[in-house]
Design a protein around this nucleic acid. Structure first.
Lengths: 218, 218
DNA sequence: TGTACATCAGTGAACGCGCGTTCACTGATGTAC
DNA sequence: TGTACATCAGTGAACGCGCGTTCACTGATGTAC
């Protein structure tokens, strides 16, 4: 996958197609490289079947390309969290409704938090390099367009159902603090399980539920 | 601090002194570099006032030098956790006893957990690059001599007081699971606060206590 | 239907850089006689 | 007390590498007449 045959040149007016291919390749290669630091423009160009300078027609710098990869993954993760309905627990069925939890009275808000927590952790463990690019030390300097911190759009998808849990219980605790605690715990879970592979880890879903339940307990 | 004047050559038989200076410089430069990946032998040599090949008299590879830095920091962190007595909360007094908590009946085990949690987090936030070298993705491949995962000596300093808390309460829950939860949360706290600097974080010690208390609640 | 031309997607060579590591060596130091 | 010598802490030049980025260019394509 490192090298591939030269790509057939796009016709005039269709040069923008290359942009997508470059982002796709960068995204795929990020998983192999393990971290954004080890991603190289030359490697990406090799995978796409072009020469490295051709990338500069679409991205002014390597960081700009990286930002495009990261932005797409941020959006994807936010979508995945929104789509994580508590009743589709196995991750199998596509089901019907778009935004779960609201409107369905038989589903407690806590189940939505649990489902989103699992989706968040699953993403992180399945794509550790991407997760690191989104929430690791590199993320801050890419200067993405989100308000405050880049992760906040994703954070909002955790904050909302956490606030719902507290509201359901008539709690007066700060939803922001509680949601932050949950985020912190899930982030720790993802990164520590990724890096400390030889540690004797317990069952994953049990740990997620335990963390969520305890951190949201009154 | 990047370059310094040439060092006066050690006398025959005293060459080993350089080893310590190299590790010291590598440790100091790690903080500037931000991550072990960005540490360079040439930069370390420059800081010590020698040429890069001189390092090879003491370390066969860059990784070997890095492992020495990491091992020293692991030991230092474990010491700091052991020294974190619950009554010396401000981090100011050196006090007397070495291993706190055991023997002192007026101090609940939970206070020891809280104190160690704060010491752990303080270390991580004050030395983010070192913390990353100990518990980040790089750590696994250095092949340090600890059983299982490199962080386990440190983890033991959390596990013990957590087990004490559970025993004190007559809980039958798994101390390993609970301690793992606490470790995960503290790790998330350190890394997320380090990387998401623009997020609106609440007060630190409050969050530490909240996480510890809730995760150890029955 | 044929030709001249402008467009533009991409190439290929080169820039200067810093890296880990190797190799043959130098030159001050302590030691043996 | 003086000299020859072995030791050893370090040097300096060089290796091959991959990197981000620049620059002048090529050559196929679509378009205008």
């Amino acid at each position: 996958m490192t090298s591939s045959e030269p790509r057939t040149r796009n016709r005039p007016g269709e040069g923008a197609f290359l942009r997508t291919d470059i982002v796709d390749a960068a995204d795929a290669l990020l998983a192999e490289a393990g971290s954004a630091d080890r991603l190289s423009l030359r490697g990406i160009a090799r995978a796409v079947g072009i020469t490295a300078p051709a990338i500069y027609a679409h991205f002014a710098t390597k960081d700009e390309l990286l930002a495009a990869v990261v932005a797409r993954r941020f959006a994807g993760l936010a979508d995945a969290l929104r789509a994580a309905a508590p009743n589709a627990s196995g991750g199998s069925s596509g089901s019907s409704g778009a935004s779960a939890s609201s409107g369905d009275q038989s589903v407690a808000a806590i189940d939505t938090v649990r489902a989103r927590a699992r989706a968040y952790v699953r993403f992180g463990l399945e794509h550790p390099a991407h997760y690191g690019a989104l929430f690791g030390p590199t993320a801050d300097h890419l200067g993405l367009a989100y308000a405050g911190s880049p992760g906040e759009e994703v954070f909002a998808e955790v904050l909302t159902p956490v606030a719902a849990v507290l509201a359901e219980r008539g709690s007066t605790d700060s939803p922001l603090d509680r949601a932050t605690d949950v985020w912190v715990a899930l982030h720790g879970l993802v990164t520590l399980r990724s890096s400390q592979r030889s540690f004797v880890w317990g069952e994953l879903d049990e740990q997620i539920d335990r963390l969520v339940d305890r951190l949201l307990a009154s």
